[in-house]
Nucleic acid binder design. Structure first.
Length: 452
DNA sequence: AGCACA
């Protein structure tokens, strides 16, 4: 049922709510399209930067008559439609709706997400990136990171126009040096750069400290007495969860790792088809104890959810305060700063900056970073269990009839095991976790009584 | 200057 055949010409095209605009200036952004078209009706969708030259666009009106009025107007007008002084040619699109308009990277903004293909992270210095992108305007900040897609950088300009000009000039099949750049927009408006380092810069703040992360790139891997590579210690543990037959939630991890001290932040993510988590303690000592105690142990009996722990290179996670995959227990508004009684290390949490940029390896940084923009304390709409809201903790037991745990159960006491104690055998007959949680429960294992 | 995209 093909309708192929004659190419359609202007005069024979059937009207459509969707207009096709061409000969647009490269810099043309959605706002300019709207300015041009909105006198004729309500615009329900747009798509700009279309075509090989990115100089075409589509505009969809709410009503067919509005599109007709615009085409009619300019058909008889002595002044052509213009964007920034450039004549724009308008005709009915041969489609009747704009599809797939808003892929996230197409929403213009002042921050670009740049993927540099075919290079190792170490091959491109941040200074080169800065140089290249400075050609289009003042570069405020740069954050680089690695993910599966390759080496990426977030580049913050003053405004969307500047960012667009850089994108238009560099995106696509162009090569800068030998690098292949793919550029889209980030949802960020303001990157939060904590340190000047080999992977991030804030050019608006020359006094920003150069910090440990900067040293990481230089630091040689330390070698232990056995000659094996020994990872530097950290207050953040990287946990790989093996044989994950049961859901491992933030709350489950919080319960497990809180046995050794205050857990500040947790982030769960997927890597290489497996599940990993970053768990942040206030200090290295606590992390070390937790690491030694939990390494190789299983969260659930029967070899399920076996933990493998290493030190993360990170010292401060910035996680979305409250999501199904992450939690920041240091944000006061969430009511999560729970001193672990006698166990709480008193180390000052000077590095704890809830608003700092989020970076953790192996995760989808772009996604995570977007999440970081969610206002603190905001409970995401996505909350399948309804359990993670602070206000519901008190009612957790009643929410799960048939679940036998009680918030005042002494079982909690057994969850707090002296650091270094050899009795930490999660797979043992009296696994502290068994008393608290049921494998397969999507619900948190319950919170200590102080929530009630 | 002539119709997107995943």
């Amino acid at each position: 049922m093909s309708t192929s055949g004659q190419p359609q010409f202007r005069y024979t095209q059937t009207p459509s709510k969707v207009l096709h605009l061409r000969n647009l200036p490269w810099e043309c952004i959605e706002e300019e399209l709207v300015e041009l078209c909105k006198p004729f009706g309500k615009i329900v969708n747009t798509k700009c930067n279309v075509g090989a030259n990115r100089n075409q666009a589509f505009v969809e009106f709410a009503d067919l008559n509005q599109a007709i009025s615009m085409v009619s107007y300019y058909a008889s007008s002595s002044e052509p439609a213009q964007v920034r002084g450039k004549t724009v040619y308008i005709q009915y699109s041969n489609r009747h709706e704009i599809v797939n308009n808003k892929s996230p990277g197409d929403v213009p903004g002042n921050v670009l997400l740049v993927t540099i293909e075919g290079v190792e992270a170490g091959d491109v210095s941040i200074d080169v990136i800065h140089l290249v992108f400075s050609a289009f305007g003042f570069v405020h900040k740069i954050a680089t990171f690695e993910k599966a897609a390759g080496f990426q950088a977030l580049i913050q300009f003053t405004d969307a126009e500047t960012a667009a000009s850089a994108r238009n000039a560099l995106d696509g099949r162009r090569h800068v040096g030998s690098c292949h750049l793919r550029i889209s927009y980030s949802a960020h408006t303001d990157l939060n750069i904590k340190f000047q380092s080999h992977r991030s810069r804030d050019y608006t703040n020359p006094y920003l400290p150069v910090n440990p992360t900067a040293i990481e790139g230089i630091m040689q891997p330390t070698v232990g007495p056995d000659g094996k590579k020994k990872e530097p210690e950290s207050n953040v543990l990287l946990a790989s969860i093996e044989n994950m037959q049961y859901a491992v939630t933030v709350d489950v991890l919080h319960t497990v790792f809180s046995a050794f001290g205050t857990v500040q932040k947790i982030a769960i993510f997927e890597k290489n088809g497996g599940t990993q988590a970053l768990v942040q303690y206030p200090d290295v000592t606590t992390a070390a104890v937790a690491k030694e105690s939990l390494e190789g142990h299983c969260i659930y009996d029967g070899g399920y959810c076996k933990l493998h722990l290493s030190y993360s290179r990170h010292t401060d996670l910035n996680v979305k305060a409250f999501s199904d995959k992450s939690r920041d227990y240091t944000i006061p508004e969430t009511g999560y700063v729970v001193p672990q009684a006698t166990r709480a290390p008193s180390a000052p949490t000077v590095w704890t900056n809830p608003r700092s940029a989020q970076m953790f390896p192996g995760s989808d940084y772009a996604t995570a970073a977007v999440q970081a923009q969610v206002p603190q304390g905001q409970v995401p709409a996505w909350d399948p269990t309804g359990q993670v809201s602070r206000s519901t903790f008190a009612s957790v037991p009643s929410t799960f009839p048939g679940q036998t745990f009680s918030p005042t159960s002494p079982a909690y006491a057994t969850a707090v095991i002296p650091p270094g104690s050899s009795s930490i055998a999660l797979t043992g007959p009296v696994s502290p976790l068994q008393a608290n949680m049921r494998p397969g429960d999507a619900s948190p294992p319950g919170q200590p009584p102080f929530y009630g």
